[in-house]
Design a protein around this nucleic acid. Sequence first.
RNA 1: CGGGGCGUAGCGCAGUCUGGUUUAGCGCGCUUGGUUCGGGACCAAGAGGUCGGAGGUUCAAAUCCUCUCGCCCCGACCA
Length: 474
Amino acid sequence: MARNITPRADDYSKWYLDVIRAAELADHAPVRGCMVIRPTGYAIWESVQRHFDDAFKRTGHQNAYFPLLIPSSFLEKEAEHVEGFAPECATVTHAGGEKLDEPLIIRPTSETVIGHMYGKWIQSWRDLPVLINQWCNVMRWEKRPRLFLRTSEFLWQEGHTAHATEAEAREETLRMLEVYRQVMEDVLALPVVVGEKTEGERFPGAVNTYSCEAMMSDRRALQAGTSHFLGQNFARAFEIRFQNKDGVMEECWTTSWGVSTRLIGALIMTHSDEDGLILPPRVAPTKVAVIPIGQDGDSLMQAARSVTEQLNSALGGLFCELDTRFHMRPTDRFFYHLQRGVPLRLEIGERDLKAGTVRAVRRDNGDKLNIESDAVAAKVPEILEDVQRSLYERAKTFREDNTFFVSTYDGLKSVIEENGGFVEAFFGGTPEDEVKIREETGATPRCIPLGDDSRGRCVITGKEGKKTIFAKAY
RNA sequence: CGGGGCGUAGCGCAGUCUGGUUUAGCGCGCUUGGUUCGGGACCAAGAGGUCGGAGGUUCAAAUCCUCUCGCCCCGACCA
C-alpha cells in the first residue's frame, strides 16, 4: 500500500500531499481548486476547531453567523481592501433565472458584511467591546490551488471585534495572536514564530498585521494564522460609531483574526514521515487504537473492550478506538492506524491475556512497551503526553537547526539557495525592496519577530533595519 | 495569462517515435478459495478498459493528421 506511494526526493510537498491521499484525509473536488474532506480528515478539523473555539470562549468571544454573499458595493467601501481582494473574488451574477442588478461576491473574508452589521448594532460606549467569531467557509480564487494549503474554498474561523479605544483594539490583536500561538504550540505541537508582517505582506485594509509562522519539514515557511489591527479603516468605511461617555461621537477601533483548514496541512507537513501522518495526541481524533489479535473469542473481546472503556473514561471522551476487523490481518490493521497518524497503538493477544498486560506501540518513534492491564488508564495518558512533548521538541529543534542569521544580502541569498529555512536579517526596506528580494532569491519577509527589538544595518538599504525573518513560503 | 507536460481498468503506469505479432498489457488495489497472521504477506483462480471526445488518412489506428475538451506542474497571486 504505502510502498506504492513513492516520495519524490525533489518534491517534498507533492510527496506529503500523496501521503495525505493515502491516509484518506482529502481529495480534490470536481470544482477547480476545491477539496472534499473525507471523514478522517474532517475529524481532525473538528478537533482543531474545538481547541480554538474553547480558547476563544475563554477570552470572552461568542460565535455568530453572517451571510455567504456580499454585495459588491460593500467591498468597494474600503479602498485598500477592494484592491487586495477583488482579483481573487468569485462573483454571483445571476439568481432566480435573472441577472442581478448588483453582483454578489462570495465572501473571501467578512470584514465588510460584519462591519456593515456592526455599524447598525453599535451606538453607545456601553455596546463595546463587540467580540464575535464566525466559523464558516470562504472562497478565494487563487491562481494556484494546493490541497489543504491554498484551496479555492476553505473552512476557517474569522474573529471580528470592535473597541472603544486604540489601546484596547491593539491589545485584542496581540491577545488573539497569543491565543493562536498557544493552541498551535501546545495542542498542534507546531512551534511558531510570532511577529509583525512587513508593509508588503500586510492584510489589505489593516494598519498592522501579525502572524504565526511555522517551518515545514521541507524548510519552507507556512503562515499558520494571522491577527490584524484594522485601526479605524473599516469603522470609517462602514460607519461603526459610538457615543462616548462625554456624549461625543467616535469611530470604533476594530480587529480581525483567522486560522483555516491550512492548519491540517501544517500538521501533515510538520509531523509526517514516510509512513504517513503522525498526529499530536491532543489534537488526534483517535488517540489510541486498540487491536485485539487472534481468534475473535469472548475472553479476548472482553479484555479489549475493558481496556477501551477504561481509556475512554481516563481520556475524557471517545478517543480510543477498538478495531475489531478480524477479517484483516493484525499487521494490516496496525498499518491502517499508523498511516492515519494515531499516536498510540495497543495490541492485545493470547500472550498478553496470559501475562495480564497489553503491548503499546508509539507512532512517533516506534517504541514498544508492555503495560499491566490494570495500569492502562494511568499509564497511557502519560505516554500520550510524552508523545505530544517529543513531537513539539522534534519540530522545534528542526526549526532551530534551520534558522540562520546573516548580515549581508549575499549571505541571505546563499543560505536560501543552499539550505533554505528561516534566515534572520536586519531589514528596513520598502515594499519594492521586498519584491526585489523575492524575485532574486525566491524568499519573502515572513515577519518581524515580536520581543526582539534589536536594530542593525539593513542588508538592502544599509540604513537601520529591524530583525526580520526571510524564507521561501507556501 | 505566459512556459512545460499529460489524458490507456479504482489508483499509478508501459505501449505511441518505427500503424498489423494486443482477443489492449503491467504494478497496486478489488473479488473468491487456500496457507498465513504481534510493522505493512504468499499461492491459485477471477472481475474490471469502446486507449479524453469528434472528424480524417489507411486493407488495418491507443499509435499518423486536423480540430476540440479536460487535467497537472513551474511562474505572477495568496490563509
